[in-house]
Every structure is written in structure tokens, then in C-alpha cells.
Amino acid sequence: MKKDKATIKLSATLLSISFILYLLNYIIFKDIVHIAEFLAQYIAFIPIEALVTVVIIGSLLENRDKIKKQQKINILIQVFFEEVGNELLCKLEPSEKKCCELGCLRWEFNDLLIKDTKNIRNEIEKHNVILELKSEDINSLYELLNSNKDTFIKFLENPYLTEHDTFTDLIQSISHLYYEISFRRSRGEYSEADMIHIREDAQRVYKNLLEKWLIYMEYTQKEYPFLFDLALQNAPFNDMEKLNKHI
């Protein structure tokens, strides 16, 4: 309400100043025709001015803001994987029953360059994740999640990520997995139903991680090529010996 009153007051003040200036112009030059012509020309120019200021300049500023916001989101995704994402992938990847289907993730990283990312995306999207987690795997997974639960909360509270639905979904799925394991641990040993439920939640997390991990690697390669070599060395999909054993 206060903002509306201030806007009305400012508008009235500016219109009053404009009226006074036009009145002074008439008093001094006594040429109402010139004033009318000038006013008509200015009114005719308003649509062009609106086009330039609102549409063109506004679009440029909006695109610049989007680029900056996306850069900040990419940095946050990079921080996430460096702090916990890569380690979480390494925890889940050994239990992946059909990980040999994702061989492209290992073979496409050559000469410090991600090749054919479109093909990798398609492979991840159609990949049917099946995790064979055992009770000891779940306990180890719980320890990792429990030690990083504050980190997940901070990411969820970050205002830049509220507009990035897919990454927010990833953090929420990880948080859900953590609370599911925590709840079932409190009741003692895992039942068969518990194991099935936890595996399903873990599979959802794993596939989300794969998709965001590729974004992280692409961004690191593009913006921080001097860090890309280190990112490759820490990548969970570079163990060729393990791949050959699965094949």
C-alpha cells in the first residue's frame, strides 16, 4: 500500500512538472501550434521508445541475468559433486548390476575432452538402474549421508537452486533416502521389504546423480579446463578393469 501511494505521488509530481514546463514554454514563445506539434511527435515516438527500452534492452538484460544465474547454479553443482556427489556415486556405482551398459561413460573421456555428450545423455536417460545393495552397503551409505546432512540442507535453502527444479529434485531424493534409511535403522535389522524400498530410493538417487554429474563434467571442462584433468581422475566411471569384469 505504501509503495502504491509513493508511486501515485511520484507520478503526480512528474506530471505537474511537465505541465508547468509546457506552460512556461507557451508564456515565453506564445506558440501553441509548435507545442502541439512537438507533443504529437513525442507521443508518436513512444511505441518505438518502448520497443527499444522494454523489448530489446529488456531482453538483453534478462538474458544476461539468466546467464549469470546459470553460472552460479553450475558453480553450486560443481561444489556439490566435489564435496559429496562424487563420493556418493562411488558408493553406489559398485552395486550397479548393469553398469556395463554405461560403458560409454568410461570410454568417451579421452584426451581431456568429453566426446559426444548427446549420446551419453541418451544412454543415461534410457539406462535401467538396478542396484544390488546389501545391508552393509546401506549402512555405509547411511554414514556418508549422515555426515553430510547439513550440506544437503544448505543446498535446499540456497535461493539460486529454488529455480533449478531438477537439481532440487536430486537433493530432495537424497534427503528422502537418508530419512528412509535412518527410520529403518532405528527399528533394528532391515527386513526384505525395507531392503526393496531402500534400493528403489537409492536407484532414483543414482540416476539423478548420473544426469547431474554429466552437467558438472561439461561445465568443468568448459569453464575450468585446468581442473578437468583432476575431475577426470576422480570420476567414478574411469575404472576400466572393473568394466571388463562386468563384461
Rank of each mutant, 00 (worst) to 15 (best):
I138G: 01
E143K: 12
N148E: 05
L232Q: 05
D239K: 07
N158S: 08
S175V: 13
D194R: 04
E108G: 15
Y216C: 14
L227N: 10
S173F: 13
A193N: 12
Q203N: 02
I114P: 02
S182A: 15
K154A: 13
M217G: 03
W213D: 10
I181L: 05
E200C: 04
Q221N: 04
K126V: 09
I181Y: 05
F152V: 02
I196H: 12
L209N: 01
D239N: 15
M217L: 10
F226T: 12
F167Y: 04
I120W: 01
E157A: 09
H127F: 08
N139D: 11
E189I: 13
N158A: 09
Y190P: 05
N146P: 05
S135Y: 03
D150F: 12
T162D: 08
D165Q: 14
K242A: 15
M240G: 15
L209G: 00
C104E: 13
W213R: 10
H164R: 06
I215F: 09
R185D: 12
V205Q: 01
L227I: 05
K222I: 06
Y224H: 14
Y190G: 06
D116C: 04
S147K: 12
I153H: 07
N119H: 12
V205L: 03
T220Q: 02
Q172L: 15
R204D: 07
L112N: 14
E223I: 11
D111G: 05
W107A: 14
L141Y: 02
L209C: 00
N234M: 10
D111P: 07
N139G: 08
I181S: 06
N139W: 07
L210H: 00
